[in-house]
């Protein structure tokens, strides 16, 4: 049998779980609303005039887009897999003839429509309050935004998978993810667009995986990148994705060999 029906079955169960956890999902949406706080801050700071090439409307657009992209690239395999490895819950998934990694991927993706549905009213309220946002007006930007968003999610998932796999050797790998998140908040363009970073520092930040998972698709969505820049961004995403997927696959294989299948 092909993989399609199995992914479909995982998706359906994932949707059912997401529905059962809708209240938690709403809380998670709100805890990732930091860009909206930044929006208020930068909107006020730009009241007297643009900051670099960002005026108030550009900040509004950027941070509403950042909030939405953050929701659409959400994944939580690092916490689930870390717990499952530590407690032995992973045993049940390992006994099924479908990869536990695919299981997590489909469960995370299955929650996306509901998560987007919960995030949309929040974004709409902000847009009403700020008077709207500017989006990309070229067809090529929109065409490239779709793969950029997909790659951003895959990259976020692969990075979390790599960190979660460390739980095969460490007691609580998800704590390491907090370190990653600390860097992400600064370097991904979550609090400040990376294009406002000082020269030199900005170029480095824009080449890192943090920016590839958030800042890049956001800038593409609000029309701040030309086609050449967009293609470069996708190239950077692909390079990081190849690295983290390879590393994740290696850690997963090695980890299973070290797995203690703890608990009775």
């Amino acid at each position: 049998m092909s993989l399609g029906p199995k992914l479909g079955a995982l998706w359906r169960l994932g949707v059912a779980e997401a529905t059962a956890y809708r209240a938690s999902l709403l809380v998670w949406v709100l805890t990732t609303a930091l860009p909206l706080v930044s929006l208020v801050l930068w909107h006020a700071l730009a009241a007297d005039g643009p900051i670099a090439d960002y005026d108030q409307r550009a900040f509004d657009s950027y941070f509403v887009a950042a909030f939405l992209v953050r929701q659409l690239t959400a994944t939580w395999i690092v916490w689930d897999l870390d717990r499952q490895i530590r407690t032995g819950e992973l045993n049940a998934l390992l006994m099924r003839p479908v990869s536990p990694v695919l299981h997590h991927a489909m469960f995370n993706l299955a929650a996306m429509p509901l998560r987007a549905g919960l995030a949309a009213p929040v974004a709409a309220l902000v847009l009403i309050a700020t008077g709207g946002m500017s989006l990309a007006d070229s067809a090529s930007s929109w065409l490239l935004f779709v793969p950029a968003l997909i790659l951003a999610w895959l990259l976020a998932f692969s990075i979390q998978l790599c960190i979660a796999c460390l739980a095969f050797w460490l007691t609580r790998a998800s704590d390491l993810y907090d370190l990653w998140i600390s860097a992400y908040i600064v370097l991904a363009g979550y609090l400040v667009p990376t294009s406002l970073f000082p020269s030199g520092f900005g170029e480095v930040a824009r080449a890192l995986p943090f920016h590839a998972t958030l800042g890049f698709p956001v800038e593409l969505l609000i029309g701040r990148l030309d086609t050449a820049e967009a293609l470069t961004g996708i190239g950077i995403q692909l390079a990081w994705l190849a690295l983290f997927m390879t590393l994740g696959a290696w850690l997963w294989r090695r980890g299973l060999r070290a797995y203690g299948a703890f608990g009775a």
Partner: peptide, 12 residues
């Protein structure tokens, strides 16, 4: 089948 582990989704 593990008496102390489950494969069933807890809330479904």
């Amino acid at each position: 089948v593990m008496g102390q582990k489950r494969q069933l989704s807890w809330d479904l």
